[in-house]
């Protein structure tokens, strides 16, 4: 099966500091790819490069075999939707109108009936009916995160790029939001998601493949059981752990024990 996104030899630097070095990977349809790594490993930078927020130092990104450097932002945003770690607003906007911004790439001026229906449907999908006409800036961090993810879903892209989507969510919400993403990427059309995440167990449970980023390079890329080994985790995160294979599904549990003292 062909990849819907290919990153070829991409590099990015902040001044002299090379954050990403020769990154090569692809993502297939209906796949969730989780990016794991320590703080500063380049997870967020990689997502921002993919979405065109940061300009690549070198390399090429292709979506559906088309070079993104030859596409304008509207064309990219119809194919790819990036969800930042947090969105804070100084102005009061209704939740409905925030989700409606997801339709921005599809709207010229007037909001069509179809756009409204898509927004309503998405609001219901994320259980936000009671919040639809409440002010976004008055919601809790977790509620805001759900709204911003709902905005990305209303955008109807092929690829979702999530930067720490569960960081502000409580345990139940983490599972629910990830399950919605799993459902969206596994049933409807050719949708996929790339998720930068810190929670190794959430990644192991929901991702089809995992990328371990270490010092700006891909340290390992493969299925959770291939990548999340004791030695890889020790090398990348500097902790000892137990990896317990699950008995009822393909996911596994990682129990982190101690930090390894640096020599």
């Amino acid at each position: 099966m062909k990849n819907i996104l290919n990153a070829n030899e991409i590099s990015f630097s902040w001044g002299d500091n090379e954050v990403l070095k020769d990154i090569n990977f692809g993502i297939r349809s209906n796949e969730i790819l989780a990016i794991l790594g320590v703080n500063g490993a380049g997870k967020s930078t990689l997502l921002k490069c993919l979405n065109g927020i940061l300009k690549l130092g070198s390399g090429k990104i292709e979506i559906l075999e088309k070079d993104t450097s030859e596409m304008n932002l509207i064309e990219i945003s119809k194919l790819m939707s990036y969800v930042p770690q947090s969105v804070r607003s100084s102005f009061s906007v209704d939740v409905f109108d925030v989700v409606l911004l997801g339709r921005r790439p599809h709207i010229n001026w007037r909001i069509s009936e179809e756009d409204r229906q898509i927004v309503s449907k998405t609001i219901r999908l994320f259980d936000l009916e009671d919040f639809a006409f409440r002010k976004f800036d008055k919601l809790s961090g977790g509620e805001r995160q759900r709204v911003v993810i709902a905005k990305a879903v209303a955008q109807d892209p092929q690829i979702f790029l999530f930067d720490e989507p569960t960081s502000d969510l409580d345990l139940k919400n983490q599972i629910e939001v990830m399950q919605i993403m799993k459902d969206i990427t596994s049933v409807s059309g050719r949708k996929s998601a790339i998720i930068a995440i810190h929670d190794i167990n959430i990644a192991a449970r929901f991702a089809d493949r995992i990328m371990l980023l270490h010092n700006g390079k891909i340290f390992a890329l493969g299925t959770p059981s291939e990548v999340l080994t004791k030695s890889n985790i020790a090398e990348v995160f500097g902790v000892t752990c137990d990896v317990i294979p699950s008995t009822n599904d393909h996911s596994m549990r990682i129990i982190v024990k101690d930090g390894i003292k640096s020599k």
Binding site: L73, I76, S81, P84, S89, V98, L101, R104, V148
Partner: peptide, 13 residues
């Protein structure tokens, strides 16, 4: 106005 620069780029602006 709502989401700042990164949010704007992801929406095609």
């Amino acid at each position: 106005a709502l989401g700042g620069d990164d949010f704007a780029v992801s929406t095609g602006v």
